[in-house]
Simulated scan of single mutants.
Amino acid sequence: MNKLLLLVGAGVGYVLGARAGRERYDQIADQANKLWTDPRVQTKVEEVKEKAPEVAQKVSEQAKSKAGEARSKIGGHESTASDGSYSNATGSYDPNTGVDVDSTQFGPGGDKLP
């Protein structure tokens, strides 16, 4: 697959960089069309299409796992209530009483500082 991408990239670069004219462009386009319609290439394309959902699932699972790990490392909490109040580890907001901010300016875990 990497070789195919390299060939495609080289072909595109040559077409864009060359000043050989329309005839050479048509030759290159014909070669690219022959390559793309080659049964060996199409076989690889179909293999990639079949594996794509499986790979996407694995990547999604890994991303969710890493996000869960990151969440567990972050201290504190965050919540928003239906009445419009909000709170997190550095302060809170209540529509009735206003804002309450962590005045130590150390944020979450500030009590653990020396």
Score class of each variant (00 low, 15 high):
P39L: 01
T90H: 12
L6G: 12
D100W: 07
G107N: 00
Y86D: 01
N96M: 09
T43K: 14
Q42T: 02
R22C: 02
G76S: 11
P95Y: 13
Q105S: 10
L4P: 05
G75Q: 13
A63F: 09
I28Y: 00
E23N: 11
G17W: 00
A63E: 11
M1F: 13
V12K: 01
A32K: 05
A67S: 15
E54Q: 14
V41N: 06
A67N: 11
L4M: 14
K58G: 02
A70W: 08
Q27N: 06
G9F: 04
G109W: 02
L35N: 04
E46I: 12
P114H: 01
S85G: 03
K112E: 00
K64M: 13
L5V: 14
N96S: 11
R40M: 09
K51S: 08
K49Y: 03
G98N: 01
G75E: 14
D38C: 04
V45N: 06
S72L: 10
N33F: 06
S72H: 09
K66S: 10
Q105Y: 12
K73V: 05
T43H: 10
G76R: 12
S65P: 01
R19A: 11
A70I: 11
A67V: 14
Y86M: 04
L6H: 15
K49F: 04
G76W: 05
A32D: 02
S72F: 06
Y14E: 11
K58C: 05
G13F: 08
R24S: 11
Q105T: 11
V15A: 03
D102V: 03
P114W: 01
Y86A: 02
K112V: 01
V8M: 10
K3E: 13
N2G: 12
E78F: 06
G91Y: 13
S92P: 03
K49V: 03
K73N: 09
V45A: 07
P53R: 00
R19Y: 03
I74E: 08
L5R: 15
S82V: 15
E78N: 03
Y86C: 02
D26E: 01
E78S: 05
V41E: 04
A67Y: 14
G9P: 01
